[in-house]
């Protein structure tokens, strides 16, 4: 696995992401500055980490989406390269046109940091091979704007094509407004693009990979990627 973690000014979970990738895959990722125009040769996974790129002073992710490196990421994705966006990374992928929809302020209009339960809808994607379909995992969220929305037609397509990969759920996998902390439509926590090689999600699996620091429920995502990409390399 040869991962590249993008670094935009104001991003702040790049170190968490890099540590998790190293911990799970045994290989440290390259850290790629936003002003670069090319990804490192041989990159097989691009990760857009969480944080507050450009302070989120404009719409979240809107400025980062226009960085020089994002042209390279769009080209990489167009060739089928794997792209993972987490939290601000998800917002950036939406703003770059790599994923549909947008993330609005949380329903209660406050920042929320807590553990949530996610139902893994599919295990046959490059990002979820480490899980079973229907499995419920516990991972943290930390965001003020995670309330996913898109127009009705887009939502129908996402649902129809099985592109909703993670949903907020109860601990036993029920989809219930009481367990949807940010009010996202259809409790959507993570979606894939139409080719299935770009995933965006609000929760932070990278913060739950050790038993004594939260849980190991986030590990499956990275272990699945490492297994697949490690074998290919």
């Amino acid at each position: 696995m040869k991962a590249a973690v993008l670094v935009f000014p104001g991003i702040n979970r790049e170190r968490d992401m890099a540590r998790t990738l190293r911990l799970v895959s045994g290989q440290a990722p390259s850290m790629v500055w936003h002003a670069e125009r090319k990804l490192p040769a041989g990159t097989d996974l691009v990760v857009v980490p969480g944080g507050f790129s450009y302070g989120d002073y404009l719409r979240c992710g809107a400025i980062a989406a226009r960085s020089p490196i994002m042209d390279a990421v769009r080209a990489f994705a167009a060739k089928g390269g794997l792209v993972l966006g987490v939290c601000n990374g998800f917002q950036i992928l939406c703003e770059s046109g790599l994923l549909p929809g947008v993330l609005m302020r949380n329903e209660n209009l406050r920042f929320i940091c807590r553990d949530v339960f996610l139902k893994v809808e599919r295990s046959d994607t490059p990002f979820t091979r480490g899980y079973n379909a229907g499995q419920v995992i516990r991972v943290p969220v930390a965001h003020g704007e995670g309330n996913y929305i898109a127009d009705g037609e887009t939502i129908a397509r996402l649902e129809g094509e099985g592109r909703v990969i993670f949903r907020y759920s109860s601990p036993d996998g029920m989809i219930d407004p009481d367990w949807n902390h940010n009010g996202a439509i259809n409790a959507i926590a993570g979606i894939a693009n139409d080719r299935g090689n770009v995933l965006g999600m609000m929760p932070h699996p990278e913060n739950h990979v050790e038993a004594d620091i939260g849980s190991t429920d986030g590990r499956g995502l990275f272990a699945g990627l490492a297994k697949q990409l490690g074998a290919a390399a």
Binding site: D16, T20, I112, C113, A142, D212, I213, G214
Partner: peptide, 12 residues
């Protein structure tokens, strides 16, 4: 809950 208390991945 309005404070990110887990960033850094070290909050035991």
């Amino acid at each position: 809950e309005q404070y990110d208390h887990i960033i850094g991945g070290n909050t035991v």
